[in-house]
Simulated assay, not measured.
Amino acid sequence: MAANFSSVPVLDFALVSDNATKPEFILQLRHALINVGFLYLSNHTVSQEVTNDLIDYIPRLFDLPQEAKNQIFMANSPHFLGYSKLGAEFTKGKTDYREQFDFATPHETQWKPGAPEHLRLWGPSQWPDEELIPGFKTTMEIYLQQVQALSYQFISLLAEAFGLPSDALNKFYDTDELMQHRGKVVKYPANDGSLTDQGVGPHYDAGFLTFLLTASPHRGLQVQNLSGQWIDVPPIPGTFVVNIGKALEFVTRGLARATSHRVLSPPVGSTPRYSVPFFQNISLNARLADEVLDFPPEILQLKELRGDPVQTDSVNFAEFDREPSGKVNLIGRVKSHPDVAQRHYPDLFAQYFPNGLPKQVSAY
């Protein structure tokens, strides 16, 4: 398979600022989007000072008293925002050995009684007590806002890489006040020898783009190439790891490649691995099956030259052909966090868990 890959390409965002070098960036981006589905982005626009401040906060966030973490437990939130304890999720019947906090950009819930349930998916974050970790909320919100701005700039370049007008994908987003993008702060403890090395099992992401900040020097992230081999994506300081979500793959008819990926726990005796993924969403009401993008023939031919990847174990987010984006995402959250669903979405909970709260669930 000629288009297979054995490493993830590094793209220099500084090339975009010069009209003489921007075409080179667009060409590299086109290759990464179609043939890999992952890339590193260096020299980006997110403040290194803000990023460093956030990284400094992360160990303190996880070192908060358990009582303080439990006060913002995710089950409190119909928006699936808040704290998830170690081992709360499963993939493919195995424990995802990670502890995490879910936060999001500011948003006032648009849902009202009688409106579609998926509008409840977005809403205010739960934040830890300011007195216990002063300044964290402000730093996290500034960080999320800066990555949001970068993600919108990047999506316009992505459109150009596919031979479309730079604003061709704007129709999938609402106005700023109606949008929300999500982030996680994740801790992968060292394998204690009693479990598998699964930090999180093989999966795809849901939306258009993910921007991952690797917040410690540990390896662990791996992506699956077209022949099914697992390829390491080691940390590169000062970069984001950017990958394609299932929604973008669907709306581009498979031209953009959502690539299966996983995280392996740090080895026995290691310090924890930390990461901060940012998930760029699209409108909750976007129906991707109703939208057709008209790609130039020479771009579509690149998909044919790539060929089809092997079937993987990652099969999540498969409902875009019949449900609005928000419903697809809500189904994914219900499956991965049934305790939240039982409390806030009882009808959906009963649909997916007719026998009640399971001992194990599949995050994907």
Rank of each mutant, 00 (worst) to 15 (best):
T138I: 12
T138E: 15
T139Q: 08
M140G: 01
M140T: 09
E141N: 08
E141S: 05
E141K: 07
E141L: 03
I142H: 08
I142T: 14
I142P: 00
Y143H: 09
Y143K: 07
Y143G: 00
L144W: 01
L144N: 02
Q145W: 07
Q145E: 14
Q146T: 05
Q146F: 01
V147I: 09
V147R: 05
Q148M: 13
Q148P: 00
A149R: 13
A149S: 11
L150D: 00
L150C: 01
Q153F: 03
Q153D: 02
Q153Y: 01
F154I: 03
F154A: 03
L157R: 00
L158E: 02
L158V: 15
L158F: 05
A159K: 00
E160Q: 13
E160C: 07
G163A: 05
L164T: 09
L164V: 07
P165N: 13
S166L: 10
S166K: 15
S166A: 12
D167H: 10
D167Y: 09
A168L: 01
A168K: 03
A168V: 05
L169G: 03
L169S: 04
N170S: 13
N170Y: 07
N170D: 15
K171Y: 00
K171S: 12
K171D: 04
K171Q: 12
K171R: 11
F172T: 10
F172K: 06
Y173G: 02
D174Q: 12
T175S: 13
T175I: 15
D176I: 13
D176P: 07
D176S: 11
E177D: 15
E177T: 13
L178F: 05
M179Q: 14
M179Y: 06
M179H: 06
Q180D: 03
H181C: 04
H181M: 03
H181G: 03
H181N: 11
R182S: 07
R182E: 14
R182D: 10
R182F: 14
G183I: 00
K184Q: 11
V185D: 05
V185T: 14
K187W: 10
K187L: 15
Y188R: 05
Y188S: 06
P189F: 15
P189M: 15
P189C: 14
A190G: 12
A190N: 10
A190L: 08
A190T: 12
A190V: 09
N191E: 10
N191V: 01
N191Q: 09
D192Y: 12
G193S: 10
S194A: 13
S194D: 12
L195D: 11
L195V: 14
L195M: 14
D197S: 12
D197C: 07
D197G: 06
V200E: 11
V200D: 08
V200W: 07
V200Y: 11
G201H: 06
G201R: 07
H203C: 10
H203F: 04
H203E: 04
Y204V: 07
Y204Q: 06
A206I: 15
G207T: 12
G207Q: 12
G207C: 09
F208I: 15
F208N: 08
L212F: 12
L212Y: 09
L212G: 01
L213W: 08
L213T: 09
T214F: 06
T214M: 15
T214V: 14
T214S: 10
A215H: 08
S216D: 06
S216H: 06
P217S: 03
H218P: 01
H218K: 09
R219V: 10
L221A: 12
L221Q: 11
L221W: 10
L221F: 08
